[in-house]
Amino acid sequence: MRDKDSLEFSYFPGCSVVTTSWESNQSLLHACRSLGLNLKELEDWNCCGSSSAFAIDPELGFNLSARNLSLAEPDRPLLVMCPRCLHHLRETHQILRQDKLMRRAQERRWKRPISPDLEIIHFLEAVVKLGPQTWKRDGLEGLKVMPYYGCTLFRPPALRRERYYQGEVENVLAALGAVPVVKALTNRCCGSFLSAVRPGLVTQMVNEIIQSAVTAGAECLVTVCAMCQLNLEIRCTLEQKLPIFHFSEILALALEAKDYESWFARHLVDPRPLLIERGLLR
């Protein structure tokens, strides 16, 4: 598994991860350093198009995603942090792989080649490839965590022949000594952009998700998507709020990161009291 080539990646952070969720980016970089994954940020990447471009002008969304693919080096897998970006980039790549003429048209447009064999993977997949089952760490001291996948990693129909992530977060958490709590709404959508335009509706949804975690006995949630993390934090109005970790944060913490103070200070629901109580932070 640990041959040198498979550990070199181009890295596509996405708009949320570089701004709103800076802590997710920092912890990712830390976790990757500890795991020996070498990331090189995709040079001059642009927005993947997000839900908005794909809703009002799918062709624009497609072109925006295609530009990113034209920037990627063919022999480095492209590691993506945001599930929605991953979905758009993969779907666009799938179309370009199957349709040579469309691929050529995009190559002419950007004056750069687009490799039909480019591998596009999510950070979670890269971690899974390292075989976390064998880590046998007990750093997380039985912390009860609900893995929250959100909706987009749950096999979108256009990518049904691609990988399926269900259960992988649990495997990693268990390998790090945490107790995954799964009898909750692990795949319910967080509300996505409706959080900005229909806050009342999303509050209801987010409360249901977090209440399901509380009922199932979880002490915190861990998400693989920065937008989910934000929506779960800002839209929860329950009295008992649970801290919401980025997957990369929990991973970096278990891998003995030191600079967590600055990440956790950015959370709207401060996770530090919980971690201190469990003896995971000093």
């Binding site: 794909f54 809703a55 129909p157 319910r188 409706l194």
Partner: peptide
């Protein structure tokens, strides 16, 4: 068509694996 956030929950339950969200996007456009 405008409320749809493309979460694909419907598609994961559709016995015919129809990409309902793709239809919604096309209709918006």
């Amino acid at each position: 068509i405008w409320i749809c956030v493309n979460c694909h929950t419907c598609a994961s339950q559709c016995p015919m694996a129809i990409d309902i969200a793709a239809m919604m996007n096309t209709l918006c456009h």
